[in-house]
Design a protein around this nucleic acid. Structure first.
Lengths: 223, 223
DNA sequence: GCGAGTATGTGTATGACTTACACAAAGGAG
DNA sequence: CTCCTTTGTGTAAGTCATACACATACTCGC
């Protein structure tokens, strides 16, 4: 197609769908595309895999470079390899899902005057560059499914939280309401939480604070 | 490390873990490695991705070329990309799971005098070339998990089968026994099966034959 | 032809779990 | 002090999973 020589093997890249819950809504991180056919459009952060790094390392490195994020939960999602997915050349892209708590410690739009990094609610997450609409959809499906049978919520939460905040997290990701009494019963029965004995004081009745006993991925039937 | 130039991008390959149930045991297909450090060892079938084909197409093509198998169920599994996984050079490999019914229509060891394609029970599936032990383990885990919440068994079964054969299929893959009455109750209640009205005659009491209403992947809570 | 062997086919009772649902208490804001 | 909002708690009904035993139908060997 292009007059130049055909590469003997496709280029290898990673793309990362970063999720957080912000303003009671599940949001994904997007970056502005700088060059090529899709310049100016939004896309998931990503980049080429270097010869000496693993795929996981590439995902972490490109994420840190483009967004400043470090120490995030990363999980490989799926590999997209249609010959036409990037009009600039054959690129096989290994997609990742990343989950971070919204500590407010990450403020996008820091680098330029035109924002080139932004949070976008997943509800209206469309018209992304390349095949990233499909990547984002797959990432969202994976996240929703996995929240039901793992303890992965911990990646979205700060070290201490109330049961109300925990429930709000589930409701934001799943997009539906849950019964409070049944939710508490189930989660306390699972024994994943450690009561901290402290209270979160706010404008209303104080709520007991909890933390996760183990902050590592485990499969547990939750919902 | 090698004195030559570093490739700008890793090579891209596919590897396929093909499963079938044979002699009441779950078995995987292995091929003999011809060249390189692992020559003579067993490995999963696979090969390079061509510039103009998708990953799915590459998996199907290499599988057909090395084993003669066509029209199989193929599903992408995971992408392995450690820089050291192939001592012959950096290769990122997209792994697939394939499932076929054992129709007896595929006889390995057809091409050479020394068998270069063989079925191996998954129980003793170890000492494979490259990182294929890990690939096979991941494929097996995926298969076992997915059998529980999809109708994927249909890929392992011929068009008509008895409930006993269906149950034997589950038991072979999962590696544990199931209660016959509860199994029948559950599967008939799901309505996935179509009674054919015919009987399988054999050395014992004849058994009713069934087929799947739909031979396409669906998520259904089965076990 | 008949007995032995083996796989098919069927129902119920118990316990575990899920779901739906209402009201009192604690604090802040005005 | 009143209002508003959020926390915190128990029970009853229904659904679902599990455990479990016996009669039937056919082939094979004698």
């Amino acid at each position: 197609m292009s007059g130049a020589f055909a590469a003997p093997t496709p280029a290898v890249a990673v793309d990362v769908a970063v999720f957080t819950v912000l303003d009671d809504a599940l949001q994904a991180l997007v970056v502005r595309v700088r060059h090529g056919t899709f310049a100016g459009r939004w896309a998931l952060p990503g980049g080429r895999v270097r010869p000496d790094e693993s795929l996981d390392q590439a995902a972490g490195r490109t994420l840190a470079a483009q967004t400043g994020l470090g120490d995030v939960y990363l999980e490989q999602l799926y590999t997209f390899g249609s010959p036409q997915r990037d009009p600039g050349g054959r690129v096989v892209s290994v997609a990742y899902v990343a989950l971070i708590p919204h500590g407010g410690r990450f403020q996008p739009a820091a680098t330029g005057r035109v924002p080139d990094v932004a949070w976008r609610p997943v509800a209206g997450l469309t018209s992304l560059a390349y095949d990233h609409d499909a990547v984002a959809a797959a990432a969202l499906a994976r996240l929703r499914a996995k929240l039901g049978y793992t303890n992965l919520v911990y990646t979205l939460l700060p070290p201490a939280f109330t049961l109300g905040e925990l429930q709000a997290m589930y409701e934001a990701v799943l997009g539906r309401r849950l019964d409070r009494r049944n939710f508490r019963k189930k989660l306390l029965a699972l024994g994943l939480l450690r009561p901290l004995g402290r209270m979160r004081r706010g404008p209303h009745r104080p709520a007991a604070l909890y933390s996760f006993r183990h902050r590592r991925p485990m499969v547990v039937e939750i919902l």
